[in-house]
Design a protein around this nucleic acid. Structure first.
Lengths: 352, 352
DNA sequence: ATGAAAGCGCTAACAT
DNA sequence: ATGTTAGCGCTTTCAT
């Protein structure tokens, strides 16, 4: 055990095993035909020297880094955090490292983040962008034919060729909205994150509108809430002041749903007795609420695995792999109930 | 715009700008004295060529990667996810990339994860290990004098020299337990994650015991719950069958608290009317519950910033920087209330 | 089956 | 202020 153990290079190993560096490299990579005896002596020498392969040298030479980049809007959102975790597990199982970047939903950050990753020569990227149809970053990636797979984004139109993995947001939103309507609600309102930050939010709003239109109900404008910034409570107070007042809210994410429920309750409305709330995502915390949150469950783990698998194929040179729409499920909790028909007009119970 | 834009190397730039590669390298690094004119021509050439620095080459030569590794038990836990996000923000602001690894609380994975990171020659590591006092990984890092900073871990005894950032878990646990006792509870029970997986859990259990002892109450064994695996509900059913039955639970994490509340409620106990619950961590979701979760708030963001700052100093060669205990705060929600004194014996309300 | 040698893209002495 | 040159640690023809 010398002081600078890991400074041992492939060359040191070669000397100690009295073979050439080429041979050492061969046994290190398992590849090539090397005599069992020499291989063993190399392994022994490596162990004795405390040798640790320096990936940098390998990467420089092979122009492959066995590293993928992951660019996500935030890790504060459990969906993204869980997804990243699943990606990391899949990647490391395949011998890949993962380098991350977050954008705070800001396309400007997408640029800086991607450049950093690209300078590091990641072999490919898994990412969620603000808008998959119109993205400088994606255009760059396309131009440079750098492998990437989108998660959660649903590119459409001219961008439809972009590889992506996620659920059918519009359909899922339509279905959960139908569930709300089936419970007897006639005055629904959607609460959404800022459309500019999320094409998912837009798709979900479309699905909501689909269901509302199909039931021949009146469609109101989604309440756009900048989650981290705005006073959700004030916005909800106003929303509940409308006549007829909404009896149910469909929220574009579970976090939004939780905040909405909290605000509604603090305004004196009982959930689901006075007003129903449904979410979207299926974060596990939602199950632990009482009553449990009614929501759409996205198969996060599967999305991650599929995305990594796709990316791996792309990296390995396969083409035309297409995208994957995975199955969502409805998780019927207890936050959506029948509207209280006896209520003339839900009196404004709370105050600001 | 040729096909292979980014294949342009520093050498191509040098040729186009009719200077030497050394000069290009100099303007790229901002360092050194280069005439404004030549610098400009180099920048122009680089732009025209769509040149993108290849970090691999730089890293190999400089034996620095401007990359840190982050090893965390999981990202499923919001505390870790939020911390990682804050680390990433701090790191990228300082020009560092971050490569991640998760261990699922399994020390065996710590080994594999760290080797991967170390092969990638990360400049330093930020990590949370199962046991900061007894860790093969930490011993290795010490032996190789690889810079690292622990987060959340609280090394003690012989391991006290290990740089760490976090709160005083024992004190914080003691304080929130005192809060519970001050509400009038006499029969408290702690619910903890597996001690083997978390030295924090052990510290918190000690703090709990401190408060219980100080109030001269009877100390019961913490209920160890393997969160992801065990049937929490069954364990709680049993716990509530004890006589005298506990009237309050202190949970070693907010997630555990949420699961506990869910199980208790499904067993027919009202929280906080029949039984009080407090958590630890201060995840933001806890604030959105109704009633809001009473808990200890760890300054996650600050922990991340401090840890990165410390690591950066270590990487830059400074020594003897010590550790940082950051301030926690109690967040008094509504999940801890006075025990119902009229209750003779809390009758078993639910069934399995 | 193994070795010799070239070179991936860059930085850092050392020259000039 | 700028150029020359020697590698950083590894993989990979091309020989043998």
């Amino acid at each position: 055990m010398t002081t600078k153990l890991h400074r041992a290079t492939i060359r040191d190993v070669a000397e100690r095993a009295t073979v050439s560096v080429a041979t050492v490299s061969r046994v290190l990579n398992g590849s090539e035909r090397v005599t069992g005896a020499t291989a063993e002596s190399v392994r022994l020498a490596a162990e004795q020297l405390g040798f640790r392969l320096n990936s940098i040298g390998r990467n420089l030479r092979s122009t492959k880094t066995q590293t993928i980049g992951v660019i996500l809007p935030t890790l504060t959102h459990p969906v993204f955090a869980d997804c990243l975790q699943a990606i990391e597990i899949a990647a490391s199982a395949a011998g890949y490292s993962v380098t991350i970047a977050t954008t705070s939903y800001d396309p400007a950050n997408e640029e800086a983040a991607s450049e950093r990753l690209l300078r590091n020569r990641v072999d490919g990227l898994i990412l969620t962008v603000a808008n998959a149809n119109k993205s400088k970053l994606l255009e760059k990636l396309d131009r440079e034919s750098k492998p990437y797979v989108l998660v959660y984004n649903e590119p459409t139109g001219a961008a439809k060729h972009r590889p992506s993995v996620g659920v059918d947001n519009r359909l899922a939103a339509k279905q959960i909205t139908e569930h709300i309507i089936a419970a007897g609600h006639r005055n629904l309102r959607m609460i959404s994150g800022p459309f500019a930050q999320s094409d998912r939010a837009r798709s979900r709003a479309r699905g909501f509108a689909d269901a509302v239109a199909h039931a021949k109900l009146e469609l109101t404008e989604p309440l756009q809430v900048d989650f981290m910034r705005t006073d959700v409570r004030a916005q909800l107070f106003e929303a509940m002041s409308a006549r007829p007042a909404p009896t149910a809210f469909f929220c574009s994410s579970d976090q939004l749903a939780m905040r909405a429920m909290h605000s509604l309750r603090s305004l004196g409305f009982r959930v689901p007795d006075d007003v129903s709330v449904a979410g979207f995502d299926g974060i596990s915390l939602g199950e632990w609420l009482t009553p449990a949150l009614t929501t759409v469950v996205q198969p996060t783990h599967e999305i991650a695995d599929t995305a990594f698998g796709l990316l791996k194929s792309l990296i390995d040179g396969e083409r035309h792999l297409g995208s994957a729409r995975l199955h969502h499920t409805l998780r019927i909790g207890g936050t959506v109930a029948q509207p209280t028909t006896t209520l003339i007009h839900p009196t404004q119970k709370g105050t600001l």
